[in-house]
């Protein structure tokens, strides 16, 4: 019988201790961010989807070597290039120019292998995270077009 009453005493004491803690939490400042009215700034190393980097002329730095395509674990990058004649010091030379750079973001696992494997520093992570959509096509990015839009 003694155990019964000590249980009641100990039990109510433990409940009061617990309640005093939760009561004190009432007066602590709110830490919740009221998204979408408030947003957070992404950290400098945040890995979003990839973007092409432009050079001084606004053309992509990419030389279409295809290292990112080969490094990608999920095969979500597909790029194409065309050969164009350009004049350098009066001589006509052939140069590979990027004509298509598509990212299938539905497959991407954001590992960053493409950025790491790029020898020309032509890729970066975007800070974009508001990407929710109900249509699959919204996640097929044409990165060349996005670059042009950013330049304009």
């Amino acid at each position: 019988m003694g155990g019964y009453f000590s249980d009641i005493f100990y039990g109510s004491k433990s409940l009061l201790i617990g309640m005093s803690i939760t009561f004190r939490e009432f007066f602590k400042p709110t830490v919740t961010v009221q998204y979408p009215y408030q947003t957070l700034k992404m950290s400098a190393r945040f890995r979003g989807h990839i973007e092409l980097i432009a050079d001084e002329d606004g053309k992509p730095k990419c030389v279409a070597c295809g290292m990112c395509q080969r490094a990608c674990p999920s095969g979500c990058i597909s790029l194409e290039s065309v050969s164009v004649d350009i004049e350098v010091d009066g001589k006509v030379k052939k140069k590979k120019v990027l004509s298509k750079y598509d990212l299938d973001f539905t497959k991407c696992s954001l590992c960053g292998q493409c950025v790491e494997n790029c020898n020309f520093g032509a890729l970066e992570f975007s800070k974009e995270y508001n990407l929710a959509s109900t249509r699959k096509e919204d996640f097929h990015f044409n990165l060349l077009k996005r670059l042009e839009e950013r330049n304009a």
Binding site: Y10, S14, L15, I17
Partner: peptide, 9 residues
């Protein structure tokens, strides 16, 4: 510890 571990329930 105070809130949970000590709780009788």
């Amino acid at each position: 510890d105070a809130l949970v571990s000590g709780n009788i329930i």
